[in-house]
Structures are given as structure tokens and as C-alpha cells.
Design a protein around this nucleic acid. Sequence first.
DNA 1: GATGAATGAGTGTTCATTCAT
DNA 2: CATGAATGAACACTCATTCAT
Lengths: 190, 190, 190, 190
Amino acid sequence: MRIKDEFKQEAVINATVKLVNQIGFVSSSVSKIAKEANVSPATIYIYYKNKEELLVSTYVEIKKTLGRELLKNIDEAKPFRDILFNLWMNGFDFITQNRDLFQYTEQFASSPYSDLVDSREYDVYFEPIYRVLKKGTEQKIIKNVPFEMLAAFIFFPLMTLANPKLCKSIELNKETIDQAFSMAWDAIKL
Amino acid sequence: MRIKDEFKQEAVINATVKLVNQIGFVSSSVSKIAKEANVSPATIYIYYKNKEELLVSTYVEIKKTLGRELLKNIDEAKPFRDILFNLWMNGFDFITQNRDLFQYTEQFASSPYSDLVDSREYDVYFEPIYRVLKKGTEQKIIKNVPFEMLAAFIFFPLMTLANPKLCKSIELNKETIDQAFSMAWDAIKL
Amino acid sequence: MRIKDEFKQEAVINATVKLVNQIGFVSSSVSKIAKEANVSPATIYIYYKNKEELLVSTYVEIKKTLGRELLKNIDEAKPFRDILFNLWMNGFDFITQNRDLFQYTEQFASSPYSDLVDSREYDVYFEPIYRVLKKGTEQKIIKNVPFEMLAAFIFFPLMTLANPKLCKSIELNKETIDQAFSMAWDAIKL
Amino acid sequence: MRIKDEFKQEAVINATVKLVNQIGFVSSSVSKIAKEANVSPATIYIYYKNKEELLVSTYVEIKKTLGRELLKNIDEAKPFRDILFNLWMNGFDFITQNRDLFQYTEQFASSPYSDLVDSREYDVYFEPIYRVLKKGTEQKIIKNVPFEMLAAFIFFPLMTLANPKLCKSIELNKETIDQAFSMAWDAIKL
DNA sequence: GATGAATGAGTGTTCATTCAT
DNA sequence: CATGAATGAACACTCATTCAT
């Protein structure tokens, strides 16, 4: 029999991300994705049960990658602020170097498909971050507030800054990055 | 302009917002909006050139309202932090009391339609906020960073916290609100 | 506004029946029906909620017509056998003169759509037939067996004979018709 | 021929009949049949040129079986009515004991595929029945009418009664069966 | 101004069949 | 012989928009 063409599936994923970035989530139809991937629409249904599964599984894959990237070269022995800065910069690097992947997750998160994701599929990749922040709280280094609030002041500003649509005029050089992190730090530190 | 017409147009806008909240941006078709507004699809095309204009202008209207609400009872003579807190609480009140309008803007902002908005249409309503922040910078009360960065640390966390999807577990009482504002303040104050 | 074009709807019904007769129930797709009726596929969905409704309501309409035709010129004062013969000939005339309508009902009845029909919609047209047969039973003219069994020996042979596919070699002249009815009569009479 | 292959082909036939009974003729796609038979879709195309041939040949096989079953234990020396009753009961037994096979033939017969069958493939199995009926006619035991007409009064009522969709309320016990046969007999006897 | 009818182009999805192994 | 991968064409249906009144 014909062997499964891994390239084809990868082409589908790439086409999905590319199209979502180019024309948006809504307009990215299965047939357009198929055309972009040089594949028949029917082929997509070999790999994925339906459109939902294509979009959701693409999202989950990206989230896993993001989780892995965030924790790259993290040394938990370092001072807390340094760990956080590492995390932050890893996030920044991922966002800027994989703008299309990042943008896909942003669009996905605000789409009705986002309700269909079982976050447990990738939560494990983010668990170390919870743990680090919890330790910071316990050691009275950062404020004792819910995790979501910490995230709202650390990671959401990061995402905002990295979003060229929202921050057209901000040049993202070493200085602004440091400045932004230091603001995030001021927000959460005790 | 006849009174009857205004009612119709208003019904269309309300139906748009209501439907977007009920079934999402994607599924809100012109004919469904028309049905919800008790109006013919063709009628909508009397008021708006096309669907895009309907969605964009609805967005702009909400932005204008938001701008007006933000500046309610703002006394520029007060101390800077109090002014900011007022702004912040006005924003919080708007979001929680007009969740449907807010949710519409969120969905709109992450749709491809958002590229089509000319922000100058509502910027004037937000201009006082720019001015206040600028004064704060000049008086060395807050950090001297681009406006978007300030916004990223003041208003985006607010929106994040008010988003029930993102912050399921956070109860929004007086205490958490104060806490959140104080974190935002720590982030931007000098 | 544009007024509803009765001709269009009729064209759709005719096209449905015609196509079902030409290419069968299964191959008669909405788009083919639309093309045959010189109408856009979308137009069909103005008249009918979905394909099912188109097929079912076409069936019901034909059944109503059949019911009306069967009872044409029936004089319940006549002898029982004559009434039955009248019914029988009315049926025969309908089948042979509206072969396409009849064939549609045959195909429909053996399609999965047939489960979706609420027979109460047309039962009223056939009620007089029930009544006549019941009277025949009570007056000990015909055998006291369930209605379906009577039908199986009166009307199903009729349908079989009128079906050119099943009875290729039988010429349907006055003599064969009389012969067939007399066989049906022998089957049910006491 | 290898044993393994026969199993596969038989599995395909069984799957075809089973699926047609479960989900109907229309929905029974080649891939679903293949899945049900634990076989690749491509395998089916080794045994059959195309879907049509699969369906038609399955039909023909069933017809052959039916022919064989009808003639089981037929003793042409018996009185004519007894022979006929034997045939009739054999038919009844086949229908009730192989409802799935019978239902398949019913669905097939009212599908456009039925035009593609060459009845000569199985006619030989039914030839004895022709012969018996012909003798009955010659011996002036039954009416001298075309074979199809006899069939319409003997076998079609039988099929009608055995069709649970058409005869929901009729319980098929010894008594009703006898009654039905006697009606058929009244119809054809001289 | 206001409308319901009408539509071509598109949607997600399944199909019978063929390909390459 | 047997297979899972692959596909173009078709499916039922919805869309944003325009037409005719």
C-alpha cells in the first residue's frame, strides 16, 4: 500500500497556520487550506476527523511547543527574578521568532473552537511555571495573588507588546524589553 | 430623519451585539441579524453598505460609548493616582455592566475586520486619557514609556481579569479590584 | 418586494418528480433538481427547510391527489362490488395516467425518508375507503380480515400489474383489467 | 483459490447485507462496507469491478438462495394446492428467517440498480415454479392468466404481509398465514 | 424607505474509485 | 492478493448581496 506521506500532513498544518495568519480564522476554509497545502480536501479528512479537529490539534501542538520553549535553559537554582526573566525572554523569543504560530494561538483562543480544547493535553508543559510562581509567593518574593492575576501582569503585557497590531510604534530592542520586564516585575514583586 | 427608521437601525445594532454574544462572530450572518431585529435583510443594506460596515460601525459606536464612560466624573484637579483609579474603575464598571458590548469589541478586535477600522473615528474620545498620562509622565509621577506600554500594564490586565473565560476562578470584589489596580500602579509609577 | 413566483415552486416539484423517475431517488440531488427546474439550489431552500422536507411534502401532495382521485364519482349507494370496482379503476386510471407521480410514491415508500412522514396528513383522504371496506366486512360481503390484508389482495396486485418493470409482458386492456379485478374480488369475497 | 480469500469475499457480502439493513441502501458506502467486513476498500475492487457489481451480484446470490429454498421438499406428486402451499410456506419461512436477506432484495428491487440485473442468472432456480403453475393452468385447476398475474396474487401479498413496515398490526401466526394463503388460493383457483 | 424572493459562490464533508507498495 | 493513502467530484446546505415591487 501507499505509505502515509508525513510531508503531506505537515503541509496541511503549515497551510493552516499560514492561511489563518493571512486571511483570518473565519475565512480559512478547508478547501482553501487544502489548496494551499497542494492536497485534496478529502485528504485532510484522512488525518483529521473534521475541521474542528484540524484546528484544535494544530492549536494544541503549538501550545506544547510554546510550553517547551518557555522552559528552555531554565535553571531553578538561580534567583527568582532571573528565572522569571528567563521565562519572559523565552516567551518573547518564541513570539517574535514564530509570529505566525503565536498569532494562530491568539486567534484560536478568541474563536468558538477554544471551548473545545482540553487544556490538560498541554497543561503539563506549563506546570513548572505554576510551580516557580508558587515558590516565589511562598518565599514572599512576589505578591500573594491568584495565578491568573500574576499572568495578567507578566505574560499578557508581553503578548500585547509583541503584537504588532496593538503596538505599532514600539520598537522591540533590548532596552524596551528590559523596561517592559521591569514594569512587570514592579507589578508583582512584594 | 424619521423616528421609525432610528428604531429600526437601533434594533439592527442591538441584534448584532446580541447575536454575536449568543452564537459568536462567525455564525452571526446578516439574515440571522435581520431576523433577530425583525427586519428584512435588504433593510440592513439601506443603513450599511455591506456586512463589514455594519460590524465596523457597531464596533466604533461601542468604542465611543466606552470612551465616554471612561471619562465620566473625571476630575483632573485630583491627584494623579486618583484620576487613574477613577478611569480604571470606570472601565471596570463598563465591562461588567455591559458585558455584551465588551465581548463584542473583544471578538471584533481579534477578527480580520479590526484592520478596517479607522481609529481616528473614536480616538478623540480617548484623547483626554492620553493627555492625563502624558501629564503624569511629565510630572515624573509615572515612568516615561510609550503610551501603548502604559496601556499594556493598566488596561489589558483589567480586561483580562474581567474576561470570565480567562479568569474563571477570580472573584471580582472590592478587594481583588483594589489589589489589581495597585499592581497596575506599581508597574507604571516611578 | 419581489413577489413569490408560484411557477418556480411548481417547477421545483415537477423537476423533483421527473428526476426521481429518470435517475432514481438516490441520484436526485438538490442541485440536479435545481438545474432541472431552472432555479438556484438556494431557491429550493426558500420553499423547503431541507431536502427531506422537499421530498416528504412532494410525497404527501401526491398522496392527497391520489386519495382524491380514488374517491372520484364513488356512489356509496351502489352495490359493494361496484363501489370496489370503481375504486379499483380510479386507482388504475391514476397509476397509468400519472405514471411519474405513482412511481415517485413507490420509490419514496421504499426509501428511508418514508419513516419521516406523518400519515395523518393524508389519511383523511383515504378514510372513506377504510369505511367502505369495514361496511363490506360487517355486511358479510367480504372476509373478516385485517385491513392491511385486504389491501394486500386488492391494491397491491393492482400496483404490481401497473408497474411496467414488474409486468413487462402484460398488456393492460379492458379484459386483463377485468380479469385482475375479478381475481382480487375472489380473494376477498366471502 | 485460497481459503482465506473466500472468507474475505463472504465477509464482504455479509457486511453488505448487514449494512443495508442497518443504515439503508443509500448510506451503505463502499468504505463503510469495507470497514464492516474488516477489509480494505481496495480489496472489494479485487472481487468486484465496482460498487454496482457488488450490489447486483449480492442480489443475484440471494435470489438464487431464495429459489433453492422455495423448492425445498417440494413433491410434485402431491395435489396441486398442496404443492403451492408448500412453496408459499417455504417463501414465508425464508422471509421471516432471513429477514435481512429479504429486506436487501426489497431495497435493491426498488433501486435503479435493479435495471442492471440479468434475470437469466437466477431464472433457472425459479423455472420449476413456472412449470408447476403452468401444469395447474393446463389441468384447469387455476385460472388461465399470465404468470405475472398469478405471482401478483400469490407472492406479492406474501411479501406485503411479511413486510413489517407495511403490516405493523398483523401478527403472523399459523392462523393468519393459513387465512392469507387461502385468500391467495381463492384468487387464482378456477 | 422597506421588503421577501432570489441567487452564485461558497461551506464542511463524503463518495466511489485508483494509486503505490 | 491485499492494503491504507489519496483524490476529484459531488453532496446538502448557508452566505452576503441584489432584485423587483
